[in-house]
Amino acid sequence: MTQAASSPLIDTWYVDPKAEDAMSDGHAPIWRHLIGLVSEIDLSAFSVLDFGCNQGGFLRMLHTMRPFRRALGVDIARKSIERANALKADMPIQYQVGDNVAGLTQEFDLAFSHEVIYLVPDIDRHASELWRALKPGGIYYAVTGCHSDNPLWPQWRGLVAKKTNTVVQDRSVSDYARSFSKAGFDVSARKLGFTGFVPFSEDGWMPNFADALRYYSETKIVFRMVKPR
């Protein structure tokens, strides 16, 4: 992969490396819920891309629940990719460092990203690259609650800058939809609508527990972008 127009490579997402494992544990119920929303059930012949895979937990969970033919996970965090490769066992998954998928053309049936697109420097370019990477009829599910329509965003923006090694971007839900539509996708979206129990945690991200409940049911968005055949 070339690194032109890519995010800078880092060692870990969080300044505190111990937070990486906690992030994966916290995301697991959300990943399980997301997989339940995906209408494509039989993935046995599918190739799958996970953009911003971190330690690779989503693809491992997806393969356990809905086995796929092969998958690629990419991430800018070197140590996260090392961990992902150490954990994949004999699953048909390749993990590699980077975030530029410009060289991939019509390789994937499905693509996913979870809380990554708000960090992409050039969202128009990202949308175009994902469009090219997907086969005709391919689908990109992109999930984020980090958008300027989130009432917690002014507080979160500062926390992301303080606690992580990433550069934050400010975009609305409509900004994302316009970029993916301009790239050629048929764009739709829904609220994540998480229906599981949300654990109580005073980690500084949520001002109070009611905000956490609203965030996972009302604020977090799942985009479904379809590349026309």
Rank of each mutant, 00 (worst) to 15 (best):
A4K: 14
A5N: 14
S7P: 00
P8W: 12
Y14P: 01
P17R: 13
K18H: 08
E20P: 00
D21R: 14
D21W: 12
A22S: 11
M23G: 01
A28L: 15
I30Q: 00
I30P: 00
G36H: 06
I41Q: 12
A45H: 13
V48M: 10
D50W: 05
G52P: 01
L62N: 02
T64L: 14
R69C: 06
G73C: 09
G73P: 02
G73D: 04
V74N: 01
K79M: 06
S80N: 12
S80G: 12
E82T: 14
A84D: 02
A86S: 13
A86F: 06
L87N: 06
K88A: 09
A89L: 12
I93L: 06
Q96G: 00
V97K: 03
V97Q: 04
G98A: 00
N100G: 06
V101N: 03
G103M: 10
G103K: 07
L104K: 12
T105Q: 12
T105I: 15
E107R: 14
F108G: 02
D109K: 10
F112V: 04
H114V: 13
V116W: 04
I117K: 04
Y118A: 09
D122G: 07
H126K: 15
H126M: 15
W131E: 04
W131A: 05
A133C: 08
K135H: 10
G137T: 04
Y140C: 05
Y141R: 05
A142E: 06
A142C: 14
V143H: 02
V143N: 02
T144V: 09
H147D: 05
S148W: 04
P154M: 09
G158L: 11
A161T: 15
K162W: 02
Q169A: 11
S172T: 15
D175W: 03
D175R: 01
A177Q: 10
S179W: 03
A183M: 06
G193W: 12
G193H: 08
G193Q: 07
G193R: 10
G196E: 04
F197R: 07
D203S: 09
P207G: 09
A210I: 13
T219W: 13
K220H: 09
V222S: 01
K227R: 14
P228R: 13
P228W: 07
R229T: 14
